[in-house]
Nucleic acid binder design. Structure first.
Lengths: 170, 170
DNA sequence: TATTGTTATACTCTATAACTATA
DNA sequence: TATAGTTATAGAGTATAACAATA
């Protein structure tokens, strides 16, 4: 039941955006004017997210972990016994779509489903020793990668960027 | 040939993320510990992008414009005569996937496809008067919406956030 | 031979309805 | 009656291969 995940081309790398030159509007050659889109927070946040997560996805491909798998395993890792319902609320995943993710992680023996102590309807998700070891390694690699990606920014700027992003969506 | 687009539920709003409380790991109730994920730039950038673009999508639904339609029309608006190939490179869209987007915009008479003056293979995309009027209004609404969304930040912080994001992905 | 635009198609992601078991 | 988890399925988004017309 484990899902085979063929290596996938990762788009949204650092190449596609070309620098705009004001005043140029020739059709066939030369860079385009994207000045307006570049004023938009949504546009810039999406491009940054696609780039960073694309890099992370490449890094996690060695574990056959997609970004969503990593997020789920990370929450399970730090919240042993978490229920599917809580995971869905926390990561904004719809319950039907979480099912096969959990099945795949369970098949690889990174988590186990145990009956919930106080609620017969619910199932607690617990990381296995294998899953804990995996996530210790994977989280260390992701943290190291994020340092590389955020390298153009000073440590103060890195903190500030995350702080500003959180003020937007929280 | 125009695509009917049923109003779609927009997820990723400001509710799903719950504040973590350190030390709490009870399974069925209480907020989860998501401290680790919240240290990640990719995680925060994605949540912010989903939130901002979700708001924009709601605003553009009145014109039956999805985010990708808005981006394409905006580039056409500011680059009359742009080719499909240029659009794909600029917005990171694959050529086969741009075809039906352009067909839909053409069917609504927001752009026209004219033969390219210097290249018989290429087709230039030109905004119609209707398309120009649409985008003047739509871009004004998006800019106003972005001001609302970025309201928790000071004007200096807003500029800085965009500047920091660009340093990440450029 | 390389590029533009296109068709067909497959795969992934996201969404809704409906069912069961339990509270 | 409401909630947790699941199944089935539909729709949207993203990917590759291959073709005709033109450079």
């Amino acid at each position: 039941m484990s899902t085979p995940k063929p290596a996938q081309r990762l788009r949204g790398a650092k190449s596609p955006v070309q620098r705009p030159k004001k005043g140029l509007q020739t059709a066939s050659a030369g860079p385009l004017n994207t000045d307006y889109l570049e004023t938009l927070l949504g546009y810039n946040a999406r491009r940054a997210a696609l780039y960073v997560i694309g890099q992370s996805a490449q890094e996690m491909a060695q574990y056959d972990l997609r970004p969503v798998d990593f997020s789920v395993m990370s929450v399970v890792h730090h919240n042993p016994g978490v229920t599917s319902r809580q995971l869905c609320a926390s990561l904004d995943i719809l319950p039907p779509n979480l099912v096969k993710i959990v099945q795949s992680l369970e098949a690889r023996e990174w988590l186990v489903r145990l009956p919930h102590p106080h609620d017969g309807r619910a199932v607690g998700l617990h990381p296995t020793d294998k899953g804990i070891a995996l996530m210790q390694e994977a989280e260390a690699r992701i943290s190291a990668l994020e340092k590389m990606v955020a390298n153009p920014l000073s440590p103060e700027q890195q903190e500030q960027l995350i702080s500003l992003l959180r003020k937007i969506y929280l």
